[in-house]
């Protein structure tokens, strides 16, 4: 059972295993997806999160299960940590009817109403207004909980970023904004696109308490998220976290990665969030020597099951193409 009541991280062995297990699930799931992509089992755009796992894991560890998550097109990790079954996520990658969005969304559009997971939004910054609205609904309905919105630093160039931060601050809404700053908006470096590359200071000008954190360190991320989400739940208005991170893979499977130096990638890989955390946890005696291997075995089994499920799943019948464009019938009462 996830402990969300505390505003500090308690690194028990159990919790450390959970953090490493979740990061490993994302890493191995996505490595498998890349492989399946080359086999043409997965098509379309595939945006891998590899290198950035500490952010989804750290932040979502601090959230209650009913606290809404709005994410982007690089959201496989967020969906898995939120608790969507890996089999459903993998089936979605394949485009099968057993997928989390019935296969209609694919990699970029993972949704789950029962997990309050609101996508899977592939318009950069398009999710921010949705998160503001979800938080507005909670506030108007008197429900005390946070809504968490993930987006990349590229979103800071969009008007919706500024409009949404202003609205959330103006209306004192319970939103936790999490900017996963991986330094590149597709192939454009932050310094080539922003007059002020410090994203967290830009949030601060709207009067939003804002913090920059090492996005390769899962414990730092979780600690920041716990502080922030508790303030949000206490009714202190929105909070903003800028997680400084890096994607190890190209933007998508179509990207030749021509815009950044190999040396830069290698330097960041030395701060791989999985090894960074597990090496530290082992040396601190929080993790036991066998834990890492046991996690790997469990995750490998989970992935095998998920791939088997996706392979065996059915395609949505073509006859259903036009279902759910609109609702089948109006409700009798609003």
């Amino acid at each position: 059972m996830r402990n969300i009541a505390d505003d500090r991280v308690h690194l028990t062995r159990e919790h450390a295993v959970e953090l490493l297990r979740q990061m490993t699930r994302i890493r191995r799931f996505e490595e498998k997806c890349a492989e399946l992509y080359t086999q043409e089992k997965i098509r379309g755009f595939l945006h891998l999160y590899i290198g950035e796992e500490a952010n989804a894991v750290g932040v979502i560890s601090a959230l209650a299960e009913d606290e809404a998550i709005v994410a982007t097109y690089r959201e496989h990790g967020h969906a898995l940590v939120r608790g969507l079954p890996m089999s459903e996520v993998m089936a979605e990658m394949f485009g099968k009817a057993a997928g989390s969005s019935r296969g209609r969304g694919g990699s970029m559009h993972i949704f789950s109403a029962r997990h309050r997971f609101f996508g899977g939004n592939a318009i950069v910054a398009g999710g921010l207004p949705l998160a503001v609205g979800l938080a507005l609904a909670d506030k108007m309905l008197g429900i005390e909980r946070a809504t968490c919105c993930f987006f990349g630093e590229g979103a800071a160039a969009e008007g919706e970023f500024h409009e949404s931060l202003n609205l959330a601050a103006l209306w004192h809404l319970p939103v936790l904004f999490v900017c996963e700053n991986n330094l590149y908006a597709m192939g454009t470096a932050l310094a080539r696109s922003q007059s002020n590359p410090s994203i967290s200071t830009r949030a601060a000008v709207y009067g939003i308490a804002s913090e920059a954190v090492d996005g390769m360190n899962v414990v730092d991320v979780e600690a920041a998220a716990r502080r922030a989400v508790h303030a949000v739940r206490r009714g202190e208005g929105p909070r903003f976290i800028e997680a400084k991170t890096y994607r190890f893979r190209a933007h998508s499977m179509f990207d030749a990665d021509l815009y950044r130096e190999k040396a830069e990638i290698e330097a960041w890989k030395k701060r791989d969030p999985l090894t960074l955390f597990s090496d530290w946890a082992l040396s601190a005696g929080v993790l036991h020597p066998d834990d890492r291997q046991e996690i790997e075995v469990d995750v490998a089994r989970e992935i095998d099951t998920a791939v088997g499920f996706a392979e065996a799943a059915e395609w949505e019948p073509v006859e259903d193409l036009a279902t759910d464009v609109v609702s089948p019938r109006p409700e009798t009462e609003p």
């Binding site: 921010l128 609904a137 949404s164």
Partner: peptide, 12 residues
């Protein structure tokens, strides 16, 4: 933002 917030509020 306010149309998007309306959509979010409807979802909520």
């Amino acid at each position: 933002a306010f149309v998007g917030a309306g959509i979010g509020a409807a979802l909520g």
